[in-house]
Design a protein around this nucleic acid. Structure first.
Lengths: 337, 337
DNA sequence: GTGAAAGCGCTAACAT
DNA sequence: ATGTTAGCGCTTTCAC
């Protein structure tokens, strides 16, 4: 059990110099008017004494923290870890710290997290919602509390907050079109059983591309499964058991697409000659497999940039927005088409 | 510009009920002695009024936050994102919030981060250090400030803090032994140019395994490169240009190992018949490639559990420890050996 | 250019 | 079982 050392405060610095602590405060924050030499002396002394501003006190006094919060279902999928990594980098540069919360795809945990966030008086919230947060509206309390927030990727359906998404319709449309152009005629679509708009939009893009190319929409070619590689593997098995097999697969996630590739290869089906595959996310995992996976890239850096634009504007204007940004996706062609 | 709404405080709740705010505080925290019915009434009222405890005030008053900080070089590598994901999950369960910081492998940024952390009066810090933080000691201020901290995976060399690592020596030793057992005779070793002990230990394990099997240590088979897939690819090219080529490769990261596999396959070299490959980290990417990559698993869940053990003990005893924990690694055999 | 006073929302310690 | 007092470290406002 060690004795408790008291951190150095501005009063300690003030006492050391025989001046008032408010003067120290002013000096350290570069506000007010004081003699340049006093300011320098104070800074030097503060430094020597090992003064570290108490942000708890400062934030409390200012009634706001310099913290941004990010809420995601799960940190591990590459799309999220890449997004958060980029987000933190920008945030640190802008002088914010970042708290990360995981909902583990559970709406009720998400709710608790939001309450907690409000308690911390975070300056802004960025969220991608849980599996079941589709018709829920537990984010609305943030609006009541005047805390700016932005959804990225996944948003509740009826939200009245700003959001930033990839043009998922276009991404799917382009992916299907690409396979059609390479001569494919029966494109299957593998989705998750999540009901977020982003997945619906991808389905719509898929349908529209078929339609615009005079192809029928066939229920049997549209299947749903889980979120991971194994799920893609299983669901592809179902697809390839069809009497009339697909010759192309669009998967809503790269991991699912890789699962598809694994099934196809294990069963001697050539890619892309027999079946082409395209995924979503530009996960580096897609480069590990063979053939490398063609993918719809969501341009995470632009997405983060857009998020900050939406968020900081609200913070700086002290007002909440309801704005929607669309990022145009880009297909990265590799070996699977 | 919207008007500013004042958050509900305990005083508001108190006024509503015509009682003292301290009573409200006690009721809400389940401390002190008060009539059960008063307590319930207060809680109900607080809820109705939409009271959210101001953690800024509470933490300030208590001179400590309920925040744990994690500092990593980069969030994206699977090992880190998995670790942090697990860490946050446990932290949330224990009632802590988590701030994440990225050093981007830069020691000076790390230094700034630490100062910032101290300002937040975080309860504890968990860190894996930057590329250049080998002989540096900028984490020592945490000790001065009496903030418990634990290193995981990468630690500064002369640190006087608790740390948790995989037994890297053993992991490498076992990996080499496994290849030798499968009949390999010339095992190469691909590392990064980072100088952390974990990489040195892996090299020692590699050397010892050779020695124990009567094999010579050959400088030409030990190469260094970058951190990523591309680097593994490039360095393998060098290795395979040797007059006497290796028939086994131990890579210090799965991504590097996958780069090796990609080079080998592109050049018609069979895996594992001609060359076996083993990586470190149990990155799911290793399942995407073909053959699937055999890997040394670091058991992230045990590592997180161990971290919390080391950290919470210090927090609860209000004392700093200097303890070292080793997790035993486990080889996960897949197709590349 | 500097000092003094006041208060943010909360809780520990001491009343009653 | 409840109330009163005081103060955490900082910054805004007003005074000199």
């Amino acid at each position: 059990m060690s004795e408790n050392i008291k951190p150095v405060t501005i009063k300690d610095v003030a006492k050391e110099l025989g001046i008032h602590h408010v003067t120290v405060s002013r000096a350290l924050r570069n506000t007010g008017s004081l003699k340049a030499e006093t300011r320098e002396l104070i800074k030097k002394t503060a430094n020597e004494l090992g003064y570290k501003p108490n942000r708890l006190a400062r934030n409390f006094r200012n009634k706001k923290s310099d913290v941004l919060a990010v809420v995601v279902p799960d940190l591990r999928p590459y799309f999220f870890s890449k997004y958060i990594s980029d987000f933190i980098e920008v945030a640190q540069k802008e002088g914010y710290s970042v708290m990360i919360f995981q909902s583990s795809e559970k709406a009720d945990l998400e709710k608790e997290i939001i309450d907690s966030l409000i308690g911390y008086r975070v300056m802004g919230v960025v969220a991608s919602v849980a599996k079941d947060t589709v018709h829920e509206n537990h984010f609305d309390v943030l609006k009541q509390e005047q805390i700016p927030y932005v959804f990225f990727d996944r948003a509740p359906e009826q939200t009245k907050a700003s959001q930033i998404l990839v043009n998922n319709f276009q991404g799917a449309y382009d992916a299907v079109t690409a396979m059609l152009k390479s001569g494919k005629k029966r494109i299957a679509y593998i989705s998750t059983n999540y009901e977020h708009k982003i997945f619906q939009d991808r389905l719509l893009g898929y349908k529209q591309a078929l339609k615009d190319n005079g192809l029928p929409y066939l229920e049997e070619l549209v299947v749903k499964g889980g979120f991971f590689m194994k799920d893609g593997f299983d669901v592809t098995k179902t697809l390839m058991a069809l009497k009339e097999k697909p010759d192309g697969i669009l998967a809503v996630r790269d991991e699912i697409g890789i699962g598809a590739i694994k099934y196809l290869k294990e069963n001697g089906i050539r890619i892309p000659e027999d079946v082409a595959v395209i995924g979503f996310d530009n996960d580096p995992m897609g480069v590990a497999c063979e053939p490398e996976l063609t993918t719809v890239d969501q341009s995470v850096p632009s997405m983060v940039e857009g998020t900050f634009d939406l968020l900081l504007r609200q913070i700086k204007n002290n007002s909440l927005n309801f704005e929607k940004k669309l990022i145009e996706p880009k297909i990265i062609f590799r070996g699977s088409v």
